[in-house]
Design a binder for these strands. Structure first.
Lengths: 340, 340
DNA sequence: TTGTATGCGTTATCAA
DNA sequence: TTGATAACGCATACAA
């Protein structure tokens, strides 16, 4: 035995053909399931395949078929958003499920830097995939432009503001924020604040708008604490700041459950009881919501459903069934628990 | 405007050649940076490329070059492990970073079903990637066998028991579990239990072994509560069960921070103070650890480092720099905080 | 039912 | 410095 393994060259149809004593065409027909292959030919081929250890080259097949049966799942990851956002994992699983049903391979591409961004763009346009699901894109992300100019079927989860003529799926952030705020007000709270986040994305801006609308005349801009990310620590910090500015606060709408969880701890540290002194509601119904004590009242975001819907849209576009760009809105029930 | 967009066929080198009035060879040399192309040729080509909207076909390029400059990142996802395990995200990011530095594209493939498993196997063996990082594989996962028979460069994060002749990176679960248990004992605890998880993986089994070894004669099997997943809810349930069996418990080692967080809540509900009545330590130093009150004392798992090391190993194998299978162990310092 | 020939869009080799 | 031409490994239309 030499120390370097022989690293055999991979076997090709050619090798199988020679071994089985048939032509390459016959083999191809067998593998693609086109039919028209005799029982004896089939057996000879199958034996030969095992013997030479043949595995079809997807690359070559893709080239001639002009499609890959793969769909990209592109996730932007500005500052570990990928880790903090509990929705992305669910969206990914939902998309994978839908693609898997049609025997499409999901390839997840994460963009963590400008360099990644360019490489992913090359990958997408280079014919590696037949379409893409893009999640958590922000305004002016280069990938948005790439998807516009390339002819690739695409569906966005959430819609970056500069979207045009492309499909997206999402929820009605404004309406659901308005609804849960109204519900919080209905418990008798008089001084209600909000921890807003990611105002440069539609989700963030719309949730704030919904909050504002629900409050109407009672809206007080001083009771809004804007932060960058939907994270636990930002929630705690914002809550402390809010309490400092308005000690008489008796209700809070946090733009995500992670923020709410942070806020909850900050409230506890400040000696406020929830829900007795302060009513608290969140958004997402992520794992956070049930983990908190008391459990959070929150807007249920159908994350897996979003992934599925986006994937299905891409598949429909690939199949030619969906030629017009579509906007799909999914329902967002409210889970009313103990925090308000 | 018709309702169906014209969906132009993509331009090829051929088109560019005709437009620029040069041969395909010259274009190829320009694009691949081989040199030997005159200034005027370059300009003509660049103009032509813009005009016809040419984008090189990665598929065709891969076929002739016999490599893709892509590396797979395979993650098994039995029952939403992907969502619960905070390490995977970090590992992924670390791997992506290392691959990105060498201008390799990371493609993340998630296996959520048997069907996925087969498709991913095809994808991997079909020449779609030059190598793969495999994370959280269990014993007898089909993918492990696939990686063995295919000649693909691979590095596992953690090592499934039936690994042979393949590289892996990990931590010394046994030693670090032993160390933190000893440290817990050093605080004067006399009745120390453990919440063990995922005993069918090396990580889970080794952590239990380390715990056992640290306790020596004092080890009492009745104080071990085994669960399936490293999850918050399993931790809470296991802690309750443990308290029922052994009310005099004064110390707990949870096999992960998520478990510890669940245990913490269960302890609190049972009226036990941490760390006064019960000392609690975890494992991972994930976001959970700092989020708990009190913050968890825990073993620091270098998740991003694991991803980087695995990716580097694969890159080295692709480059031919690493011909022998290697086992790489990373350090695991202990973060001693307030929970014990 | 099978074999043959051509094409998929590149890169690489060699003359020119 | 450039241009023809042969791979790369497979699918497929067509002839047998």
């Amino acid at each position: 035995m030499t120390s370097t393994p022989p690293r055999r060259k991979r076997a090709t149809v050619h090798d199988v053909a020679r071994e089985a004593g048939v032509s390459r065409g016959t083999i191809s027909r067998l593998l693609t399931g086109e039919g028209y292959v005799s029982a004896e030919a089939r057996e000879a081929i199958e034996a030969a395949i095992r013997k030479v250890g043949y595995v079809p080259s997807t690359t070559a097949r893709n080239l001639v078929r002009q499609r890959t049966n793969a769909v990209g799942f592109v996730v932007h990851e500005p500052h570990s958003l990928f880790l903090e956002d509990p929705n992305i994992g669910e969206i990914l699983l939902g998309a994978n499920e839908a693609l898997s049903e049609d025997d499409y391979q999901m390839v997840c591409l994460v963009i963590g830097s400008d360099r990644d961004s360019e490489r992913v763009a090359r990958y997408l346009r280079g014919g590696f995939v037949d379409g893409a699901v893009v999640v958590s894109a922000r305004a002016h992300d280069p990938i948005t432009a790439v998807m516009r100019t390339s002819q690739l079927p695409v569906a966005f989860v959430g819609h970056p503001p500069d979207l045009q003529g492309q499909s997206w799926v999402g929820i009605d952030n404004l309406a659901s924020a308005q609804e849960i705020t109204a519900r919080l007000l209905a418990t008798g709270r008089r001084r209600v604040g909000m921890i807003a986040a990611a105002l440069d994305r539609d989700s963030g801006a719309d949730r704030l708008a919904g909050f504002t609308r629900a409050l109407g005349d009672r809206f007080d801009p001083a009771l809004v604490a804007p932060v960058d990310l939907y994270s636990y620590s930002e929630g705690a910090a914002a809550m402390s700041a809010l309490l400092e500015r308005a000690p008489d606060l008796d209700g809070v709408f946090a733009a995500s459950d992670a923020l709410a969880a942070g806020a909850l701890d900050a409230l506890r540290r400040a000696g406020r009881r929830v829900p007795e002194d302060v009513g608290l509601v969140g958004f997402d119904d992520s794992a956070w919501a049930r983990r908190c004590t008391p459990q959070l009242s929150t807007v249920v975001q159908p994350a897996a459903g979003l992934g599925r819907a986006a994937a299905r849209s891409v598949l429909a576009q690939i199949a030619g069934d969906q030629t017009e760009p579509a906007a799909i809105l999914l329902d967002t029930p409210i889970a009313w628990r103990a925090s308000a």
